[in-house]
């Protein structure tokens, strides 16, 4: 797979380390009343779709940036790549 890095252009996926579903950006509030249940859900449960999946990739052999890659898990086709920092910033602004 070739990942089109927003800053560095096309890079071999072998340069990256995979973390998983991009929803891992949204860490639950550890002080909330139901924090234990929310963390169990956050740490262990996954949507695991067959199809479009937004996921976190780390450019370990490159610029050390985290990316949010939109990829089809049934075909491996990558349709969109963003910097995870941009995604996180946009989410905070939207709150």
């Amino acid at each position: 797979m070739i990942i089109y890095h927003p800053l560095l252009g096309p890079r071999d996926s072998d340069e990256f380390t995979y973390l998983g579903d991009a929803s891992l950006i949204d860490r639950p509030d550890g002080l909330a009343e139901d924090a234990a249940a929310r963390f169990a859900e956050y740490v262990y449960m996954r949507d695991n779709p067959a199809g479009t999946h937004r996921e976190l990739w780390f450019h370990a052999a490159g610029d050390q940036s985290w990316l949010v890659v939109t990829r089809n898990t049934a075909t491996h086709e990558i349709t969109h790549v963003e910097l995870a920092s941009d995604v996180a910033r946009a989410r905070r602004a939207g709150r």
């Binding site: 998983g20 449960m45 996954r46 949507d47 695991n48 779709p49 067959a50 898990t73």
Partner: peptide, 18 residues
């Protein structure tokens, strides 16, 4: 490998990645 998909039809989320 289709466990998440099938259990999703029953409204259940799984501690599984394929």
């Amino acid at each position: 490998g289709n466990t998440s998909r099938l259990m999703g039809m029953a409204g259940l989320r799984m501690p599984i990645e394929s």
